[in-house]
């Protein structure tokens, strides 16, 4: 069995994001990391591999800097490393990216696929269900735990009543929320092995697909609107006003 994990390299969530010339300035990013939910996906994939056996292929799409991400995945136990080369990934729309990833998944032969529920840059959450659609797979999102009895897979996801365990068969995609275990720490032995592991680089041509033209053009990136200066209210009767502002002005509840 081949298990795939889709990984995205994003600016570390603690890194400062600055905008330069109408675009987020990637050169100013001090640290690139796994997107946090992808770490849970990788850990869940490693655990499934350890319990059910199989080969774990780590797949990322993006520019050359993404290779570090694959080495980090190898250091904790990914067996095969696939870099879908896309220098212009930021200019591709979600459908194009999903096409790249779906083709890579199919070329890898994986039938069980893990990814994060959303990436920390776009915060979108389209990839898991989108890739599932393109490869004709089931998809369970917001998953915290995955196990297998050898024939089917059981995933835990939230429900209106709390949580529920659901069963699916391969091919299937699991989009991980915060899982029950943090991603394991690598060790020196894993790092030394990761250094020697080859990275397979697949171009769009290698994947044999045509991702077409995008219908989306990014006009600009800009810093978020300055928050208004603090507002101060007198008395408990102002609480409802503040709650209204939290909902409509700040959009946080």
């Amino acid at each position: 069995m081949t298990i795939a994990v889709l990984l995205k390299q994003v600016p570390d969530t603690t890194a400062k994001i600055s905008v330069n010339g109408g675009r987020v300035d990637e050169n100013a990013v001090s640290k690139w990391s796994f997107s946090p939910y992808d770490e849970y996906a990788l850990e869940a994939a490693l655990q499934l591999k350890e319990s059910a056996g199989g080969d774990l292929v780590a797949i990322t799409a993006g520019p050359a800097r993404c290779e570090k991400l694959l080495r980090d995945a190898a250091a904790v136990g990914a067996d095969t490393l696939v870099h879908v080369s896309a220098e212009n990934i930021n200019d591709l729309d979600s459908t194009q990216v999903q096409n790249l990833l779906a083709a890579a998944v199919q070329k890898s032969g994986a039938s069980v696929i893990f990814c994060g529920k959303q990436a920390a840059d776009t915060n979108a959450g389209s990839t898991g269900p989108g890739v599932a659609e393109l490869i004709g797979a089931s998809c369970v999102t917001l998953v915290s735990e995955v196990s297998s009895d050898g024939s089917e897979y059981t995933a835990t996801r939230p429900s209106s009543a709390g949580h529920e365990k659901v069963a699916v068969s391969a091919p299937c995609v699991f989009a991980l929320d915060k899982g029950i275990t943090e991603m394991r720490r690598p060790n020196v032995r894993g790092i030394m092995m990761a250094k020697k592991k080859p990275i397979e680089t697949w171009s769009v041509d290698d994947l044999g697909i045509d991702i077409g033209a995008t219908g989306v053009s990014i006009d600009s990136h800009s810093p978020p609107a300055e928050k208004p200066p603090g507002q101060k209210f007198e008395g408990a009767e102002s609480v409802s006003t503040v709650v209204g502002k939290l909902r409509d002005e700040a959009n946080v509840i």
Partner: peptide
């Protein structure tokens, strides 16, 4: 929402059209 995002992603992929999530 979590359901909205997932169903919308599937619809977009089915139709081969782009999706933009979480517009404000």
């Amino acid at each position: 929402t979590s359901i909205g995002r997932e169903v919308a992603s599937r619809v977009a992929a089915k139709k081969g059209i782009p999706i933009i999530q979480d517009a404000t």
